[in-house]
Each structure stands twice: as structure tokens, then as C-alpha cells.
């Protein structure tokens, strides 16, 4: 990393080479300095804007704990929904790649239907329309089905988000699997591995590397889309902020605050993503 580490076997770096190395090092540190400065200016700009707007910081501090209490729901919904989405995505991708016509057509229509309809409509489907389906089925002669299909808000939200993101991620996982060269499958098969072993030991671990960045993207988007459960009256982050803001006619403060909370949560996720990516890239030759 550092340009002036002594190279093995080098008797000494000639002065003109040292000069070039110094220039490179100088360029790098200049770049770092400018980068930091740019960020500092941006932050100052944002803070000044907030002050100029005359925000009521006391009011914000007072309501912060109440708003934050909603983040539990946000995390719960997002985490369970992304878990469900990941499972659906892997199964869906295997279906999309399957030569079994039943499995393949189910996976293909799942992706097509879910990607082709608004998430908002899907949320209401799970929450409001599903009980009606249950009622019809009950009249058809399946006892107890209506109760089973009448979902409380949080489970309905988790299902809606999980199923929806699962469809998008199916395509991500499928593309990741297909990005692995055929030679890898052939080498695994030549060793005598079954299709399942080949997928588990050789293809999927490599596909995972390709899949992680877009899946993190989905996860970050999901954190924010989890606010859709507020449509069903769940007291999560944004719902609380909007309620409080409206009641005291200080929506600006509440919205800015809740935006910041989301932002910080997403920054943490991004940090985790970078860690995972770095871990998966070990053993890789890469552009430094």
C-alpha cells in the first residue's frame, strides 16, 4: 500500500524512481485531503441550512425517543422480510433455471406477476383482500380458513415485502448463478459431483460474490419500503414522525429527523456490506 516500502531484492531505489514514487504518494494524499474537504463543506452547508430554516431542536430532542421506539418495527419488518425474500429468491432462481416445466413456470409467473404490480397494491392485497379470499374459501367448505387468512398488520407487511422483494431478487440470484462460467460446472461434474453438490459447493459460493452488492441494495431499499406497513396502522418510524409532526404543526422537524434516522441505519448497512464484500474477495486478483 505505502509507496516507500522497500521492495524485496532491490538494492536501492534510484533517485529518479523515488521522485516518481513521491509524486504518486503526493497525488494520493492530495486526493484524500480534497475528498475530506469536500465532505466538510457539504456537511457545513447542510447544518447551516438546518439552522437557517429555524428548526426547533428542543422539540426534536423531546420527540426523538418516541420516534426511535418505532425503529424496532422497521428493523423487525425489514429483517424478517429480507430473510423471506432471500429464501424465495434462491428457490425462485433455481426454478427459473430448472428444466422441470412445472417448477419453471411457477417461478416465471411469480416473478412476472409480482414485478408487474405495484407494491402498494400488494400490501393491501395481503392485508385487506386476503381475508375476503378466506371467506370465499370458507363458504366453499374449508373450515377455519378465513381466520387463518386474516393477517395482523405486521405479518401481512412482512409477507408483502418479502414476497415482492423475493421476486426482484430471484432475477438477481439467477443472473449471479448464470454469470459463473460453464467450465466450473464441468470441472465439478468431471469430479463426479451431483448437480446439488455442484450448485452448493462450486456455483453458489461464487455466485454469492456477484449477488451480494445488488442484494445489499435491495436490503437498503427494503429498510425504507418497510414504512409501507404504516399504511396498516403499524406505529413504525415514519408513521410516528408524521403523526407527531402533523399534530404539532412541526412536520419539517419530524421529517428531517426521521430521514436522518433512516440514513444512519442505511449507512450502517452499507458498512456491513463493504465488510462482507472484502471478506468474499479474498484470493482475488483485483485493481488496487
Amino acid at each position: 500500500m505505502k509507496a516507500n516500502t522497500i521492495l524485496p531484492g532491490a538494492g536501492g531505489i534510484p533517485p529518479e524512481a523515488q521522485q516518481v514514487l513521491n509524486q504518486i504518494e503526493e497525488k494520493k494524499s492530495k486526493y484524500r485531503r480534497n475528498m475530506i474537504m469536500a465532505f466538510v463543506v457539504l456537511i457545513i452547508f447542510m447544518v447551516t441550512t438546518l439552522i437557517v430554516l429555524g428548526l426547533d431542536f428542543k422539540f426534536m430532542a423531546k420527540w426523538l425517543p418516541f420516534i426511535l421506539a418505532g425503529s424496532g418495527y422497521t428493523f423487525l419488518v425489514a429483517f424478517l422480510a429480507i430473510t423471506l425474500a432471500c429464501i424465495l429468491a434462491v428457490v425462485g432462481a433455481l426454478g427459473r433455471l430448472s428444466t422441470n416445466p412445472i417448477f419453471n413456470s411457477i417461478a416465471t409467473s411469480y416473478v412476472s406477476l409480482i414485478r408487474g404490480t405495484p407494491l402498494l397494491v400488494q400490501v393491501y392485497m395481503w392485508y385487506l383482500a386476503l381475508p375476503q379470499i378466506g371467506k370465499a374459501l370458507e363458504e366453499f367448505g374449508i373450515p377455519g380458513i378465513q381466520r387463518l387468512l386474516t393477517l395482523p398488520a405486521v405479518p401481512a407487511g412482512i409477507l408483502a415485502l418479502g414476497v415482492c422483494y423475493g421476486a426482484y431478487m430471484t432475477e438477481t440470484v439467477r443472473a449471479g448463478i448464470q454469470s459463473i462460467k460453464i467450465g466450473q460446472t464441468e470441472a465439478a461434474k468431471a469430479l463426479g459431483m451431483t448437480s446439488t453438490q455442484t450448485m452448493k459447493r462450486v456455483i453458489f459460493p461464487q455466485a454469492l460474490r456477484v449477488i451480494i452488492p445488488p442484494v445489499s441494495n435491495e436490503f437498503i431499499a427494503m429498510i425504507k419500503d418497510s414504512s409501507l406497513v404504516s399504511l396498516m396502522g403499524v406505529w413504525e418510524l415514519s408513521y410516528r414522525a408524521i403523526k407527531v409532526g402533523r399534530r404539532h404543526f412541526q412536520s419539517l422537524e419530524m421529517l428531517i429527523m426521521v430521514a436522518f434516522i433512516y440514513w444512519i441505519m442505511c449507512m450502517i448497512l452499507q458498512f456491513v456490506q463493504e465488510k462482507i464484500e472484502r471478506h468474499m474477495a479474498r484470493g482475488d486478483r483485483r485493481i488496487s
Partner: peptide, 8 residues
Amino acid sequence: FQSFNLFP
């Protein structure tokens, strides 16, 4: 194989 196909 011609292209080795080691598991990277």
C-alpha cells in the same frame, strides 16, 4: 481442461 477450471 484447456482452461484449468480450478475453483477460484
